[in-house]
Simulated assay, not measured.
Amino acid sequence: MIPKFFNKKSESQVYSLTPTKGKSSSLHLTPIKSSKSSTSISQEEVEVDPIYFEEFNEWLSSSISLIKEDVEPCLTFTNAELASKILDSIKKNTLEMEPCLNETIKICELTKMEKLCPYRLKKEMENEWVYISLQARNRITAVCDLLTYLRYLQNGYRRYAKSD
């Protein structure tokens, strides 16, 4: 899903989101000159509402509150030590997770409850796999998706929704 500041027009000016040259982790706004004869914008330019973009930048720059408010609650499990190591692995992009053909009830290493654990993971290239439940896997992948999306934004990658 594209954040709400994309494809919104400001009353006074329309801006394009572009990466700053020489700084791979920062973005800046470039004004788009409006032309009454041309109403289409090339795929290289994305309209950005400057107010929403500024709010987004403030939110993005306060990554400590992002982690505390949005990520940590999602990774709150009985086994807090393992959850912390998983978060570190996600940040370093070294977490491995895969489905396993396991039809027996096991103890989920994160919740410490007996459940069907159709997934397993290992962190930091360790040899030891730990089994996790579907619910634990869904929460971990939500965090992975969020942090990956934010990495893409910081590096200037953009996803375009095809509007046909």
Results as ranks from 00 to 15, higher is better:
Gly156Leu: 04
Tyr149Ile: 08
Tyr119Lys: 07
Glu69Ile: 00
Ala80Pro: 00
Asp145Ala: 12
Leu110Met: 01
Leu60Phe: 13
Asn102Lys: 05
Lys123Glu: 13
Cys100Gln: 12
Leu134Pro: 05
Leu134Asn: 13
Ser62Pro: 02
Tyr157Trp: 09
Tyr160Arg: 13
Leu150Pro: 02
Pro118Asn: 08
Leu150Asn: 03
Pro73Cys: 11
Glu114Pro: 01
Thr94Tyr: 05
Lys106Tyr: 02
Ser63Ile: 14
Ile140His: 10
Trp129Phe: 02
Leu82Val: 08
Arg120Met: 08
Asn79Ala: 05
Gln154Thr: 08
Leu153Val: 10
Ala83Trp: 02
Arg158Lys: 15
Arg151Gly: 07
Lys92Cys: 07
Pro99Asn: 12
Leu75Gln: 06
Leu101Glu: 14
Ile86Cys: 07
Asn155Phe: 10
Ile90Lys: 00
Asn102Ser: 10
Lys85Thr: 11
Cys100Arg: 11
Asp88Glu: 14
Lys123His: 14
Ser62Ala: 10
Leu121Met: 03
Glu69Trp: 03
Ala136Cys: 11
Trp129Glu: 00
Glu96Ala: 00
Leu66His: 06
Glu98Phe: 09
Asn127Tyr: 03
Gln154Ala: 13
Arg159Phe: 15
Ala142Pro: 00
Thr76Ser: 07
Asn93Ser: 10
Met113Leu: 04
Cys74Pro: 00
Ile105Lys: 09
Leu153Gln: 09
Lys115His: 03
Glu109Leu: 03
Ala83Thr: 02
Ser65Gly: 04
Leu121Thr: 02
Thr94Gln: 02
Leu101Gln: 15
Glu124Cys: 05
Arg139Trp: 10
Thr76Ala: 07
Lys85Glu: 15
Lys85Tyr: 12
Ser89Tyr: 11
Leu95Pro: 02
Ile132Phe: 06
Arg158Leu: 15
Leu75Trp: 04
Asn102Gly: 04
Glu109Ala: 10
Glu103Arg: 11
Leu134Phe: 15
Ile67Ala: 05
Cys74Leu: 11
Val130Phe: 15
Glu98Asn: 09
Glu128Val: 12
Met97Ile: 15
Cys74Trp: 00
Glu128Asn: 10
Lys122Asn: 03
Lys92Val: 07
Val130Lys: 14
Thr141Pro: 02
Arg151Met: 10
Glu103Asp: 13
Leu101Ser: 12
Ile105Asn: 04
Val130Leu: 14
Asn155Lys: 11
Cys117Pro: 07
Glu103Tyr: 06
Arg137Ala: 06
Lys106His: 03
Glu128His: 12
Asn155Leu: 14
Asn79Cys: 03
Ser61Lys: 09
Val143Trp: 08
Ala161His: 11
Gly156Pro: 01
Val71Pro: 05
